[in-house]
Write a protein that binds this DNA or RNA. Structure first.
Lengths: 339, 339
DNA sequence: TTGTAGGCGTTATCAA
DNA sequence: TTGATAACGCCTACAA
């Protein structure tokens, strides 16, 4: 059904190797033969069997990408960047989701490894998740690059953002608005949240506002989606205790959206009762009511850069490389929700 | 570096074929030998080379999935359903985005075909997009299943929703609220929008409200993201002409979100000035201000069902199958934006 | 400039 | 119950 090199060879009275060379534009083959072969191939819709090619060459021309959840604006934007570069570089990408679950993460790595990929771009669950598995990949000549969640022990290229700085500026902004009781809602053990918490604390410190552990909520992402409930419970609890915050800084895209939802549900006016700002890459920030103040990450750029770095490694597998950690800047978009 | 069947065979003084059979639990191999082989394999971290296996067997155990844009709640939810089933079925999925661009769609099909997939799940751009390419796949024994965009000429299983019904009920709801000047914003040539338009018209008809072409906007999705600008221009134009609608029904997830944004930008109060309802699967519908009334599609179910249907085809490639078209029901969620 | 032979890692067929 | 052999489709020395 599907035509192969041999078929072409037979039809043209050539050897399979000549056909192979002709299709690969080898200098050992005459122009006429090349033309003959290529025309025939085109006419008969010859498509090379990548599987066989891979088996022979060892190159799969595919890259594994492990993200925690692709239905997240931030992640989707990274993915867009990744895809742009992957197309230029003629690499296919195989996307897997870890859902912030270390078991699924390990499984994804395993699947990709079995299937054969030339490299792996991953946003790991946390500091040391799947460390041995990733190291094993590297030792087998499959380069790994970390993206977004760059606080990981693995020794390699890492592309993320300046989390401390982003959090610091957002918090500073709230402080500058005269807010005194700042709450921080974050995720537990997500690999980037520590730095954001540090930024939060640092901004408080510069304003001589003591950090109040009661105003910190670290949501658990390992279980199903109880996050919204956790947030609601915490806020209600603060209200009941007469400890209402006057501003909230949210650490991730997902948390920001959910917090907004909880406040709406509780009929808490934003920003008059509680001001809100958070990490968010939603393209609809301006369309929300009130328009959302956000720390925006250069997600598209991160995706592009991360993938480029990975391709570099793939292409010079055997040379010594000085690994870099790149932290891009975030942008602070002030809108109504924090004013 | 990586251990192969032969290595095991050599180490155990067996033949490669026996090792292969042992690992595949063939009945021709003795229990002791199996244990021997499996233990050795485990101990030495043997992982089978899927590439070689595929070359030999012709089965890739991977399925191509072509969607138009994965950073869309609705699509992301479908994808979740797809992934759940794919893991059960032990198939990998390779995700590609067509971005509602027929050239990219064709390219994606080509890539998947070259790379080798056992089947294709696709949400095609429109009625006849890539029809010949898809048919060619089928003729080469690679089954195709259509999802979401089920109004396509291809003869196969199709899994989508009852678009007419969903649109009809949403529009009917607006009519029941006493709305008279209903606007419909939709996408041009997206394969599902005709039926939604028909549902819109039918609901108007039952209320004896004439359909007004001026109150219809079909956005062009083939070019970059001018959609929001188009919507804004149209609404401003209607306002200027004193033709302000009193309600809007939006046909897709993306259009609903964007329309909401435009209305906010134009400082048009929802629902008092203009009521709004639209197809949307955003998990934050209740968290928007005002909470968004929406026609919700069973996206997760669609993904699951579509993938299941595809796997069925993959597994009985040579039997005659009676193709089905399945239209799941949508849910109407009435919230504040349309009241 | 073209062809031959061997092999990538696996499995299927047949023989032992 | 095990083993030898060939084959999947392609590429690459090396020979012609």
């Amino acid at each position: 059904m599907r035509i192969t090199l041999k078929d072409i060879a037979k039809a043209l009275n050539l050897s399979a190797s000549s056909v192979s060379k002709a299709l690969n534009d080898s200098h050992e083959i005459s122009q006429e033969t090349k033309k003959l072969v290529k025309d025939y191939a085109e006419k008969h819709h010859f498509r090379i069997n990548k599987i066989a090619q891979t088996l022979k060459t060892g190159k799969t021309y595919s890259i594994g990408v492990i993200l925690f959840n692709i239905s997240n604006n931030f992640v989707a934007q990274m993915l867009d960047g990744i895809q742009v570069v992957s197309e230029q570089a003629k690499y296919d990408i195989i996307i897997m989701q870890s859902r912030n679950n270390e078991l699924l993460e390990k499984k994804a790595i395993e699947v990709l490894r079995n299937r054969g990929v030339d490299g792996l771009l991953i946003s790991p669950i946390n500091h040391q998740s799947s460390e041995t598995e990733l190291r094993a990949l590297q030792e087998n000549g499959i380069p790994v690059v970390l993206i977004d969640r760059i606080f990981h022990n693995l020794h390699t290229h890492k592309v993320g953002v300046n989390n401390f700085e982003g959090a610091y500026r957002a918090t500073k902004h709230l402080v500058d608005q005269g807010k005194k009781r700042l709450m921080h809602i974050t995720g537990k053990d997500l690999g980037i949240t520590e730095e954001r918490l540090n930024g939060f604390k640092a901004a408080l410190a510069t304003a001589n506002i003591p950090f109040h552990p009661d105003l910190l909520l670290a949501c658990d992402y390992t279980e199903g989606s109880q996050v919204e409930i956790e947030i609601k419970r915490k806020i209600v609890q603060l209200l009941d205790a007469g400890q209402k915050p006057d501003a909230i800084f949210c650490a991730t895209d997902d948390i920001t959206s959910r917090t907004l939802g909880v406040l709406a549900e509780l009929n808490i006016a934003v920003p008059t009762e509680i001001a809100l700002i958070g990490f968010s890459n939603t393209p609809y920030a301006h369309a929300l009511n009130p328009a959302l103040s956000a720390v925006v990450q250069p997600a598209f750029e991160m995706g592009k850069l991360g993938f480029q770095k990975l391709i570099e490694l793939v292409n010079k597998k055997h040379q010594e490389v000085a690994f870099e950690t790149i932290a891009l800047d975030t942008e602070l978009h002030i809108r109504k929700s924090s004013l």
